[in-house]
Nucleic acid binder design. Sequence first.
DNA 1: TGGATAGTGTTGACATTGTCAACATTGCTG
DNA 2: CAGCAATGTTGACAATGTCAACACTATCCA
Lengths: 202, 202
Amino acid sequence: MTLDGSAYHHGDLRAALLTEAAAMIDEEGTSSVTMRAIGRRLGVSRSAPYRHFADKSALLVAVAAAGFDRLRDRLEAVGAGDPGAGIERLRQIGEEYVRFALENPGHYRLMYGKEAITRKDQPELREAANALFDELVRIFRTHQQSGSIKRQDPQVQAYVAWGAVHGVASLLLEEQILTAVDADGLIRQTTATLLDGVRAGR
Amino acid sequence: MTLDGSAYHHGDLRAALLTEAAAMIDEEGTSSVTMRAIGRRLGVSRSAPYRHFADKSALLVAVAAAGFDRLRDRLEAVGAGDPGAGIERLRQIGEEYVRFALENPGHYRLMYGKEAITRKDQPELREAANALFDELVRIFRTHQQSGSIKRQDPQVQAYVAWGAVHGVASLLLEEQILTAVDADGLIRQTTATLLDGVRAGR
DNA sequence: TGGATAGTGTTGACATTGTCAACATTGCTG
DNA sequence: CAGCAATGTTGACAATGTCAACACTATCCA
């Protein structure tokens, strides 16, 4: 590969496509991502992406999967400096989850919106989401063993928690929440209610 | 309007567009709704819908709003024959909510997916969603007065509950749930956790 | 009654988009 | 250095949303 600016080959177009698509999605929504537009922004022709992704849907799937990876990294980092912080870490993780969604609205929407992504089970996306979920289950299992939360199927417990934070994040993103309601307070009460519902010893 | 089959005018195209679009959405997803396809199914030309909706987005907004209305009707009907059924009604409403989502997957996705709907605050959709929310708030307020649940801002309480059922519905819809997990059990545990978290007297 | 007029539906046209095929350029490997 | 695989470009095409110009119909008023 050449290093001068007039390179015929881009260098690392695949990675550039992923970050540029993510940026466009957060700036102007998924519908603003067209093959021509993304090519223009990267100084590349409209069909160059086809050398790296089978079609537009595959590109979006990869972007969504990368989103799950980033989200997982952020959640893993919560309380990493203070291990064994007890049940409080659960609350912090839940709040970090919602924060991620609010900071990356378009990206987050894509992660859950299969609309823009044509059928065909996309294992890449499924696996990224599952990795995030497994992390959650592990945390719940740990807290069950330490006796701080109810002993229930940790998978179901994790799904309930995941659903709750995802739901609130989704409502906030879609601006379904009245402006009179304080978003931070809503997020806090969501995690608080969840913890009250799952805490051991009634 | 004429009554023979070769009518130039459809009769009630507006209503037909709404139900047909909803049907197509649940059958093959929002992306399958094209002006040409819906016209074909209704025996009408591609641009006939423009006499009733400003553009495709406006049609989808109307479909989504109708979805919120139908959902509200169903939730209002829960326990209507057994008034004052206590806190148990909350659980039933939550479960009915998820059931609606699972029975109308495409329609439900559209209600919350602003992707397919181009910007421009669509007051019709906002109002339909708010009507549903107001109904929820009223129910929580009632239960607070009867002393069965914690005295908190009922709006926030309603948002937490709404978010939780919406989140679980969304995970189920997007097939983000492992097949080994029982969907009915997950739904029940969601409402149970929520109620435990909100019940008065710890 | 009959004709104006607004409402409703149709066809033609155009720009945009995703995608494929054919071709061009580059980098790497023997 | 020859050749081959990887990567990028342009031309073309079908599908789509949408608008303008035109056609048909119902309704209401003189």
